[in-house]
Amino acid sequence: MIPTNYYIVLSAILFGLGVLAFIFKRNIISIFMSIELMLNAVNLAFVAFSQAMHKLDGQVFVLFVIVVAAAEAAVGLAIIILTARNRQSLNVERVDLLKL
């Protein structure tokens, strides 16, 4: 069937694209979405290895990663709303002072 290598390579490609998006995006929400993309890439590697090793630990870790990502999204988006309210901008280059 499908070799595990294919899944791992796809996971590496998605992670690299996530890093690229993290560097190139200027909108704070887009940067946050690229973090989610990287988390998804890691999840794919977890499930692929879990299947290759015939153990379920990897899938349990994926569920924990999803829970942590949900908590992170809640706190991160609250911080984004706060930043946008204080700076009137979503561009990360405008957020360069600790105090207004």
């Binding site: 499908i2 070799p3 595990t4 791992i8 590496a12 290895f49 299947q51």
Partner: peptide
């Protein structure tokens, strides 16, 4: 930097995944 990171990950995979080359069987577990 992003290309270097992806290349580094790819090189590591190419070197170390001989052990997980085994063909996967969908739907036989989990």
């Amino acid at each position: 930097l992003a290309f270097a990171l992806t290349g580094f990950i790819a090189a590591t995979i190419a070197r170390s995944t001989d052990t997980v080359q085994a063909a996967s069987q969908p739907g036989n577990m989990a």
